[in-house]
Nucleic acid binder design. Structure first.
Lengths: 155, 155
DNA sequence: TATTGTTATACTCTATAACTATA
DNA sequence: TATAGTTATAGAGTATAACAATA
C-alpha cells in the first residue's frame, strides 16, 4: 500500500500520517513482503504459493474451492497456483472418487520440504527484523500482531 | 504478499509459517492496506497518492525526481500520481526558475486538507485495529513498528 | 552530453466471465 | 439445474524504455 521509503529516521510526529499504525503496517508489510518474495524466489515460488502450501499443511486434502475460500482468492487463481506447484512436484491433485468434479489437493513429501524451507527463511527474516528488539518486546509484538490479525478480519 | 485469510483463530504453532512475524506482517499489512484503500476511495485517492501528499507535507517543494527517490518508485509513476493530484487541486507544479527542467511540487491548501482528512481516517482505522489492545500494548506495538520500519530498510 | 519530465509500451498479478464435466 | 474446475479475457497497478526540453 502506502510504500513511502523515505520516512524520517526519528519517530514521526504522532499526528502525522507516517505516525499512524495503519501507515506503518502498510509500508512495513510491503517491504517485508518484498523481502520474503526475494528470499524464496530461487525456490520457484512466490508468497501466494507458500500460502497455498501452508493451507494444505494444516488439515486434510482440500478441494480447490475450499482452498480459494480459505485464502480469500478466486478459484481460478488457485488453478494457476496449483498448476505451478504441481509442476514443482510439491502438491498432487487427486480426483475425489465420491464426487468426480472435485480435485483434492494434497502435499507431497517434496511439498512438505519446500514449505519447511520457506518457513525457515521466514524465520530467518524474522530474526533480522527483530534484531533491535528485546525478548520482551518481541513477545509483545507477536501478541499484538495476533490481535491485529483477528481485528483486521482474519477469521 | 501471503494473504491467506483463513488463519486459525487460536495462536498458530510457533514453528508453523503462520506463526512467523514475516507472514503475519504480510497478511495484516495487505488487509490493512485494503481497508485504508477503501477508506479513502471516495476522496478520489489511493494510498500512493496519500504517500505523495505526505512526502510533500514534510519539507520544501520537491522536484518529481526527489519525490520518486523518497517514495521508492520510478519517476514516471510520480508523473501519473501528480497529474491526478493536480486534477484534484491538491498540489501544484511550478517550474523552477533556476532550472527550467524541474517541476517543483507543492501542496495547496486543498491538498493539506485532503492529507489531514486521510490522516484522520488512518487514525480511525488505527483505533479499530487496536481496540483489543491495552494502552501499554498499543505503545509497545507503536515502538516495535518504529524499529521494524528501520530494520526493514526504511532510511 | 547529461538530466528532468513526459509519453508509449509492456509486464505482473489478480479478477470476471464464459466454458466443460460431472452431479 | 447447479457446482467444481478450467480457460480466456480484461483490468489495475507499476515498471522499462524511448522521447522532448533544458542544462
Amino acid at each position: 500500500m502506502n510504500d513511502v521509503k523515505g520516512s524520517p529516521s526519528q519517530e514521526p510526529a504522532p499526528e502525522a500520517l507516517t505516525g499512524t499504525l495503519t501507515f506503518r503496517l502498510g509500508t512495513v508489510g510491503t517491504l517485508v513482503g518484498a523481502r520474503f518474495t526475494a528470499a524464496v524466489e530461487d525456490l520457484g515460488v512466490r508468497p501466494k504459493h507458500v500460502g497455498l502450501l501452508s493451507v494444505l499443511s494444516s488439515g486434510a486434502p482440500a478441494s480447490q474451492q475450499d482452498v480459494a475460500r480459505t485464502m480469500g482468492v478466486v478459484p481460478s487463481l488457485v488453478v494457476t497456483l496449483a498448476d505451478q506447484l504441481e509442476g514443482l512436484g510439491a502438491i498432487e491433485r487427486v480426483r475425489d472418487p465420491d464426487d468426480r468434479r472435485r480435485h483434492r489437493l494434497g502435499l507431497t513429501e517434496e511439498g512438505r520440504a519446500l514449505l519447511a524451507e520457506c518457513t525457515a527463511r521466514a524465520r530467518a527474516l524474522d530474526a533480522e527484523l527483530t534484531a533491535g528488539l528485546s525478548a520482551t518486546e518481541r513477545d509483545a509484538l507477536a501478541h499484538a500482531m495476533g490481535v491485529l490479525a483477528r481485528e483486521a478480519g482474519l477469521p
